[in-house]
């Protein structure tokens, strides 16, 4: 398929001073700067523990952000992921109930539920023409209601075998991080090399034009929402395997809804849709994780982290906007 596509049809952002290079440049700079700062206090940032820390932090956010990228590329966004992660961790852990034999059914059930929520989001956005902000906020509130009603704390139990997913590692690299990166690779392939992936960009660029060009825009939007929710479901399963049980507020406590949007936008994807990609998103996730880890090593209070994160987000997007204007 990719052979038949002319260069002009490629996602436009690749020609517009690729922000991905800038993101990874910033990441390297940050790693160097962080290493120097930590070294000045007599520590080492990128030792085994540091790398492990950065990658573990990146895994859950990375999974959510990969899905969020799909939705944002179509010009929508998904605010329901944080509650969905909590819900999925519960579904997974309660279905497994400590029984290794139930792992596969539990995973399938969790992902099916996640896909159902995504389908609901997509249908409401595409068919009822509800603004994605409101539609997913509504879904988030509904899931929150269910969680508040039924749970007060952690529930369910994950079998020991399943916990290996969260804790096993090869050298300093966690297996789960590798799986996350593999998923990112798959998403990259989907977006850059397949027809439905191109349609995502087309819909995000201009939904009307895409429709007039013969793209079934409704289907594209629904697909994006389903993929996003499934990614959130995977994040929920990963967190369940880390925690050993399901926790209703595991997604919201970490603020994965706004955090994932921040990571995507930090990675150079336009919030209005149509430009960007998964490679940048992973860079954005790694930048956020590196910032966190560096501050932890430096012993900075967590409140300062929020301030820096906010400033970094605004500055990064302002720089992207300038870059686009100059062209």
């Amino acid at each position: 398929m990719s052979v038949a596509v002319e260069p002009g049809v490629r996602p436009q952002w690749t020609r517009l001073g690729n922000p991905v290079a800038a993101v990874y440049g910033a990441l390297v700079l940050l790693l160097v700067l962080g290493s120097v700062l930590v070294a000045m206090r007599g520590g080492v940032l990128l030792d085994q523990g540091g790398i492990l820390n950065i990658l573990t932090r990146s895994t859950a956010l990375g999974l959510v952000a990969i899905g969020q990228t799909m939705v944002i590329l179509t010009g929508k966004l998904d605010l329901s992921v944080a509650y969905l992660i909590g819900l999925c961790s519960l579904i997974g852990a309660e279905t497994m109930a400590g029984d290794p034999g139930m792992i596969l059914p539990a995973v399938l059930l969790t992902l099916a539920c996640a896909a159902g929520v995504g389908l609901l989001n997509g249908l409401v956005v595409a068919k009822l023409k509800v603004n994605a902000f409101i539609a997913t906020l509504g879904t988030a509130l509904i899931i929150r209601g269910y969680l508040e009603n039924g749970y007060t704390g952690p529930s369910g139990q994950v079998p020991r075998v399943f916990q290996h997913l969260g804790y096993d590692r090869i050298g300093p690299v966690p297996v789960s991080a590798l799986l996350m990166l593999a998923l990112a690779g798959l998403a990259w392939w989907f977006l850059a090399r397949t027809r439905p992936g191109y349609h995502l960009y087309a819909v995000g660029g201009d939904e009307e034009v895409a429709r007039f060009s013969g793209i079934r825009t409704d289907r594209v939007v629904i697909t994006a929402h389903v993929l996003c929710s499934v990614a959130a479901g995977l994040a929920g399963l990963f967190l369940a395997s880390r925690l050993g049980s399901g926790a209703p507020w595991v997604g919201t406590d970490a603020g994965y809804d706004l955090e994932s949007i921040a990571a995507v936008v930090l990675g150079g994807t336009l919030l209005a849709g149509g430009r960007g990609g998964v490679a940048g998103t992973i860079g954005g996730v790694l930048i956020l994780a590196t910032l966190d880890t560096t501050f932890d090593e430096l012993g900075v209070t967590p409140f300062f982290k929020d301030v820096v994160r906010g400033v970094v987000l605004i500055v990064a997007v302002a720089l992207y906007a300038r870059r686009r204007m100059r062209r």
Partner: peptide, 20 residues
């Protein structure tokens, strides 16, 4: 002036205010 989407600006401001 900097042409940053208001969603991002105010999200950043949320983080800054919370932290500060």
């Amino acid at each position: 002036r900097l042409l940053v989407p208001s969603f991002i600006v105010t999200l950043g401001m949320l983080l800054v205010l919370d932290g500060a």
